[in-house]
């Protein structure tokens, strides 16, 4: 059984951007979450934090704008916006760990029904683990949003009763944005907020996690 065509990555990113309140301080993880920046409304006043030490990061740098001293967390050249600031690593992570960051958006291998996050290590014997700032973000941001496809390439669900991959954080995920549905992880359980190309009943049949209707 396959679900109908779901959202593209850009459409998922637009959904996340819609849910970020104007004026928020936001960290976008490496990879897919970076796309969210393209969908923030002009004038929203959202300030992007990059963990290597900058607030009010601008778009990717091109041509003459490229400066080896100005990169993002993915080590790609970026630009600064008016009102930008620079700071060292302990300050940058104090912003996360001290609860000053409103939202972080992360990718994931798995999310559990209680909001556990696994996104840093597959646990494969030959894999070289790398964690970066993921654990600090997952633990410290006021709201943790995750973007991922709901099913792995082999069809297995990535929203699971318990994560089988090594954890990044325990009970830290607040919202989950996938290609076929968005979810809210609440103390009462997993709430289906919206579906795309599928239905609540179909999701209930595909996932091994109790689902609540909104």
């Amino acid at each position: 059984m396959s679900l109908g065509a779901g959202l593209s990555k850009a459409e998922m990113a637009a959904l996340v951007a819609r849910d970020i309140a104007p004026g928020s301080y936001v960290n976008l993880g490496i990879g897919q979450p970076t796309l969210v920046a393209d969908h923030l409304a002009p004038g929203s006043g959202v300030v992007l934090h990059t963990e290597n030490g900058m607030l009010n990061m601008g778009p990717a740098a091109t041509g003459d704008q490229i400066d080896p001293d100005l990169t993002n967390a993915g080590k790609l050249p970026v630009t600064e916006l008016p009102g930008a600031s620079y700071f060292h690593q302990a300050d940058s992570f104090a912003m996360m760990r001290g609860g000053h960051l409103d939202v972080c958006v992360l990718g994931a291998f798995q999310v559990s029904a209680t909001g556990d996050l696994a996104n840093w290590h597959t646990g494969a014997p030959d894999a070289i683990p790398a964690v970066g700032g993921a654990m600090d973000l997952a633990t410290g941001a006021k709201s943790v949003f995750v973007m991922m496809t709901l099913f792995a390439k082999d069809g297995s669900p990535k929203l699971v009763p318990r994560c089988t991959y090594p954890l990044t954080g325990v009970g830290c995920v607040d919202r989950l944005y996938t290609d076929v549905a968005t979810f809210e992880i609440t103390p009462g359980g997993v709430v289906v907020r919206e579906t795309f190309g599928t239905s609540y009943d179909e999701l209930v049949g595909r996932l091994d996690v109790p689902l609540l209707r909104r």
Binding site: E51, H88, Q89, A90, S92, F93, A94, M96, R97, V131, G132, G133, A134, M135, D136, G140
Partner: peptide, 8 residues
């Protein structure tokens, strides 16, 4: 080491 732990 998580990056924030490394810094701190």
């Amino acid at each position: 080491v998580p990056q924030g732990n490394l810094a701190e």
